[in-house]
Simulated assay, not measured.
Amino acid sequence: MPKIFKILVMIATCVGVGYLSSLFTREGVDTWYRTIEKPSFNPPDWIFAPVWTTLYIMMGLAAGLVWDKIEEQRETVRKGIIFFWIQLALNALWSYLFFGLHNPLLALIEIVLLWLMIYETFIQFNKVNKVAGYLLIPYLLWVTFATVLTASIWWLNK
């Protein structure tokens, strides 16, 4: 299977998961989210869609680059891809917990697990392909910020 096909499949998968997550997000933003207290450093709503779209594309590119090395580093690639799928599922789950269930505390607990899975994915991807590892750094940084934001929202609204 050609490298470009693997990359495109993974990008499409990540963007698709992002789209599905956005269904909970849109509904929650338009109703509940507008009514809760947010910290002063809360970004404007319009910033989230372009940031997340960019991050999903970078995640998919990273996963495709790693998947392409399956024949050369089967075990490390397999381990990295497993962590990748776990973090992608946790990524989608966060939107449901926060915006769907309106539960910042549960979302906070979950995002800590998400951060750990992203970090482990980064470690595994970095062993296979340095560029793939580097492509996950902005995602890790954004989720670090999102963790602080989630914690702040929980604290302000508990």
Score class of each variant (00 low, 15 high):
M1L: 14
K3G: 02
K3M: 13
I4D: 13
I4K: 14
F5T: 15
K6T: 01
L8R: 02
L8H: 03
M10T: 08
M10S: 15
I11M: 01
I11N: 04
A12I: 04
A12C: 11
A12L: 14
T13W: 09
C14G: 03
V15P: 01
G16V: 03
G16C: 06
G18L: 03
G18E: 09
L20K: 10
L20Y: 12
S22D: 13
L23K: 13
R26V: 14
R26D: 15
E27C: 04
G28F: 07
V29R: 10
V29T: 12
W32R: 05
W32P: 01
W32E: 01
W32V: 03
I36G: 03
I36W: 09
I36P: 07
S40G: 11
F41S: 08
P43G: 06
P43R: 04
P44D: 13
D45N: 15
W46K: 10
F48N: 02
F48S: 05
A49T: 15
V51M: 11
V51K: 07
W52H: 10
T53Y: 10
Y56P: 01
M58H: 07
M58R: 04
M59A: 12
G60Q: 05
G60E: 00
A63G: 05
G64R: 00
L65I: 07
V66R: 01
W67C: 00
D68Y: 11
D68G: 07
K69S: 10
I70V: 13
E72D: 14
E72S: 14
E72L: 14
R74K: 15
R74Q: 13
T76K: 13
T76V: 15
V77G: 04
R78H: 10
R78I: 08
K79A: 11
I81H: 03
I82C: 00
F84P: 00
W85H: 15
I86Q: 07
L88F: 10
N91S: 09
N91E: 07
A92Y: 10
L93V: 15
L93P: 05
W94G: 00
L97R: 04
L97P: 05
F98E: 05
F98M: 12
G100P: 08
L101P: 02
H102W: 10
H102N: 15
H102M: 06
P104N: 06
P104G: 04
L105R: 12
L105K: 14
L106N: 09
L108C: 08
I109N: 03
I111T: 07
V112S: 03
V112P: 05
L114D: 02
W115F: 14
W115R: 07
I118A: 00
I118M: 01
Y119S: 09
Y119R: 09
E120N: 10
E120I: 09
T121K: 00
F122K: 00
I123Y: 08
I123S: 00
I123R: 11
Q124H: 11
Q124W: 11
Q124F: 10
N126K: 13
K127Q: 14
K127I: 07
V128H: 01
V128K: 04
N129Q: 11
N129E: 14
A132Y: 03
A132F: 03
A132S: 07
Y134L: 13
L135E: 00
L136S: 02
L136G: 03
P138H: 09
Y139T: 08
L140R: 07
L140E: 09
L140Y: 13
T144C: 06
F145W: 09
F145A: 02
L149R: 05
T150L: 01
T150K: 06
A151S: 13
S152G: 05
S152A: 15
I153C: 08
W155D: 12
W155M: 14
N157A: 08
